[in-house]
């Protein structure tokens, strides 16, 4: 008989963070759309200049971090929903984390290279 263990006593902050990051991403999306309509992406040069702005870099960075955290909670939820063996879940969690950290680093590199 396998003993079932529940009671990890976390989850609220992740659930909340997913909502908060969702809102942040939505706001960022609105700003970018507004900038596009305002012609910020009319040419490659305009776009480059727009993205070089310190404030835009900062909120883009926030967006990337939000996206990664949001994705972490969401993808982890999928593994928890559908993958039952705990060992397999740990591996998938680690791979997900590594991928997301990697993506985040890569994105930061791109933003500050511009």
């Amino acid at each position: 008989m396998k003993r079932l263990v529940v009671g990890a006593h976390y989850g609220l902050m992740d659930w909340l963070a997913q909502r908060v990051t969702g809102v942040l991403m939505a706001i960022y999306t609105v700003i970018i759309f507004a900038a596009m309509l305002g012609g910020a992406t009319a040419s490659r040069e305009a776009w480059q200049a727009f993205m070089a702005n310190g404030f835009i870099r900062f909120i883009t960075f926030l967006f990337i971090i939000s996206l990664c955290y949001h994705a972490w909670v969401g993808v982890r939820d999928i593994w928890m929903d559908y993958v039952n063996p705990a060992a397999m879940r740990v591996i998938l969690h680690v791979l997900t984390l590594l991928a997301l950290v990697g993506y985040a680093g890569w994105a930061v590199q791109i933003i500050w290279r511009l």
Binding site: V6, G7, A8, H9, Y10, G11, L12, D14, W15, D77, M80, D81
Partner: peptide, 14 residues
């Protein structure tokens, strides 16, 4: 609330 604050017990609800 303590008992339910758990990734499985409560937060499996999507």
């Amino acid at each position: 609330l303590d008992d339910l604050e758990d990734p499985y017990r409560l937060f499996r609800c999507h």
